[in-house]
Computed example of a mutant assay.
Amino acid sequence: MNEHSDHGVAVASGLLATSLGPRLFALGTHVGETVRQALGGAWAADGDGPTAEMNIALHLPDGSIIWPVQRVIKRFPNGPEDSIAFYGAALGLTDTSTNRRRWFRRRR
């Protein structure tokens, strides 16, 4: 996202320069599916009108409801302050401190 957009403007010849809506939707569903595979849950669309796909929600096993497609769409104009990586971390998907230590541990 950082390489292909700058606060709501697609970088010329970047991946978001064409078909912006479908690409943001695809990124949002990918984020949601990553969360679903890690935490469980089920997708649910709210309504059946033309905006139903924008309001697709992911119901998590703990009762939480998240809207990853909307999150990605908001990330485009707002920039890095709406970080998708932070979104995943806030949901508990990453623990970089333990991963980093394991990757860079000296072998004896």
Rank of each mutant, 00 (worst) to 15 (best):
W103C: 04
H7A: 12
S13V: 09
K74W: 00
T34N: 11
W67Q: 15
V9E: 12
S13H: 15
L24H: 05
F104T: 11
G14K: 02
E53G: 06
I66V: 14
S97Y: 06
G92A: 15
E3Y: 05
G47R: 05
G32C: 08
I84L: 12
F86W: 05
F86P: 01
G92R: 09
A38W: 07
L60A: 12
W43I: 04
G40F: 10
V31L: 15
A17T: 02
L20K: 03
G63S: 10
E81K: 08
W67S: 02
G88F: 01
V11D: 03
I84S: 02
K74G: 03
V35A: 03
M1E: 11
G88C: 09
S64E: 14
A10M: 04
W67A: 05
Q70T: 01
A57L: 11
H59G: 00
A45E: 15
K74F: 00
A17E: 08
H59C: 10
E3S: 07
G14D: 06
I65L: 05
L58G: 05
W103M: 12
G88L: 14
G49V: 04
T98N: 07
P50F: 02
G92M: 07
R108C: 09
G32M: 11
W67L: 13
A45I: 02
A12V: 08
P22Q: 03
V9R: 14
S64V: 07
L93V: 01
R106C: 02
M1C: 07
H30P: 00
S19I: 07
D6N: 13
A42C: 13
A90E: 14
T94Y: 11
V72C: 01
G28C: 09
R107K: 13
N55R: 14
V31K: 01
G28M: 05
R71I: 04
S83I: 03
R107N: 11
H7T: 11
A12T: 11
R106W: 04
A85I: 09
N2D: 15
D48W: 01
E33P: 11
L39D: 12
G49P: 04
L93H: 07
Q70E: 07
G88I: 00
G32T: 10
S13R: 14
L93Q: 10
D62M: 08
S64W: 08
D95L: 06
R75W: 10
S5M: 09
A42N: 13
H59E: 14
A38C: 14
R101K: 04
S97R: 09
V9F: 08
R101W: 05
K74H: 05
H30S: 08
W103S: 02
R75D: 00
G92T: 07
F76T: 01
D82N: 04
F104V: 04
L15R: 08
T96Q: 08
D48I: 03
Y87G: 03
S83K: 02
L39T: 10
A12E: 13
T94F: 13
H4Q: 10
R71M: 09
R23C: 00
D95H: 10
T34A: 04
G79R: 02
Q37G: 12
Q70P: 01
M1F: 08
A89G: 10
R105F: 07
E53W: 12
D95Q: 07
L24T: 06
N55G: 06
G40Q: 03
E3W: 06
F76P: 00
H59M: 06
A10Q: 02
E33L: 09
G79L: 06
S83C: 15
P77C: 09
R107Q: 09
